[in-house]
Write a protein that binds this DNA or RNA. Structure first.
Lengths: 252, 252
DNA sequence: TACGGCAAGTGGTACGACCAATATCGCTTG
DNA sequence: CAAGCGATATTGGTCGTACCACTTGCCGTA
């Protein structure tokens, strides 16, 4: 027999419940499935943690919106431990990004329609106009620009993978990502590279876009290596203390 | 305050529990966290569904092995609906595989150590020796061979992505994947291509490996397109009946 | 010493109760 | 008559208890 969570999913599909629709009450569902509310709640909590349902205390349980990017982010949560345990994990991420960002830019140059191009220009301007003293906004706008390229590539799988890679980078070296924008004179260089990628895509020049993206990623990786190398030493010394803090928090 | 599931994760980290280690009993943990066993179980079930824990009835709850591939497979479950709703989803998957499998083979040729090469040879032989009349075993051995290449590429992220892509393919066109091996004379062709990829990797010839993998994937995609195109028509007509069956199963 | 069975411990499930947040409906009131 | 408001029903969140099924391991017996 299928697991309870799967049976609930099947029920959603069978009833054609759309995002935002209200689920039957827990007591009703429990009766319908002929299980206790406890067991039903365990199953519901699994679906909630997977982002398929949303529970509101006193309000009800609703089908969540399949947020195109959100499922990928939650999907990567199990990898957090792995990403944090291996210090060089971000290098693996960047190695793949060097490959995929090139292909993404190439596809985008070939396939971007007018709506894609409008989004790309908008995203580029957001990066260029981001306040120079706000690394947080810089990082978000930068990621949004690359995600706009991924969207313009018109490949759902590629889009999801790129979203995942950004998430993994965020997890493994979020601090260094912020500090990247503090390097002297780097904003102009990044903007220049972004502009070149943008122009190549808008012009439909796939090969040039590929090369521009490859150069950009190589540049970013080299700078991140500088930052991360110097940060690794300090981090190592503070790890023991962190463990104690975690134990304390777990028992709080 | 952190969620209960997070507090449990923190406890695992703080206690340095390794895969296979036994978790405290539910009743003990509930007392330690000062929550009811019901609430604790809801949190534990979330971690179980995410593959971090394994519960054995009567035996205890154990920390799961970070199976390198398994978390990705469960992580992709939220994408099932998307994979199934879009008929052409598998084309996106194959498009990315054409790119990544080439790079994977290239990396493997450059980085494979003796243990990797032994695994590759073993995996290849498993494919070549799989019974010709057993598509299920064929498909599994084939996937295992490609995963061995991904492992030999020595990039954790790449390995996870490849595992995810195989999972997505399995979800979207598992039937066609099985029927692939029924095409007349295809086994010899596939084995020949696999052999070429293997030889190039063993010889350390990165460029040849890349080309061999690219040719292989292009070939497989063309054959899958033949099968899938002819299958699409029939599937469409039986979809209505399937929904009824799901409703029935959900209430069973 | 080896074997078998019993008891303790564990996860799985169920039922009932209560609390807190929310939604719903009806009543009062302007 | 309509709008605001308060009581009530509904819903998710939590707790406690009890019982079952299974595993483990210990102890007693052969």
């Amino acid at each position: 027999m299928a697991s309870l969570a799967e049976r609930i999913e099947a029920l959603i599909a069978a009833r054609s419940l759309k995002p935002g629709d209200r689920m039957p009450a827990e007591r009703s569902l429990a009766a319908e499935f002929q299980v206790s509310r406890s067991s039903l709640r365990e199953a519901i909590q699994q679906l909630v943690s997977r982002g398929l349902l949303i529970s509101r205390h006193g309000g009800g349980t609703f089908v969540a919106a399949p947020d195109e990017a959100e499922p990928v982010r939650t999907a990567l949560l199990p990898l957090v431990s792995l990403a944090q345990s291996e210090a060089g994990y971000w290098r693996d991420v960047m190695e793949i990004r060097k490959l995929l960002d090139s292909d993404t830019a190439s596809f985008a140059a070939l396939r971007a329609d007018e709506a894609d191009k409008a989004r790309l220009v908008s995203a580029y301007q957001a990066v260029a106009n981001a306040p120079a003293d706000d690394p947080e906004t810089q990082a978000r706008a930068d990621a949004a620009f690359h995600m706009a390229i991924a969207q313009a590539a018109h490949n759902a799988v590629l889009h999801q993978i790129m979203a995942g890679l950004h998430g993994l980078l965020e997890i493994s070296i979020s601090d260094s990502l912020r500090r990247l924008y503090d390097l002297p004179g780097i904003l102009d260089l990044l903007n220049q590279q972004h502009r070149q990628i943008l122009d190549c895509i808008l012009a439909g020049n796939a090969e040039a876009a590929r090369q521009a993206a490859a150069d950009h990623l190589t540049f970013v990786e080299s700078r991140l290596r500088l930052i991360e190398d110097s940060a690794t030493r300090q981090r190592r010394s503070s790890r023991a203390l962190q463990h104690i803090a975690e134990e304390k928090e777990a028992l709080s």
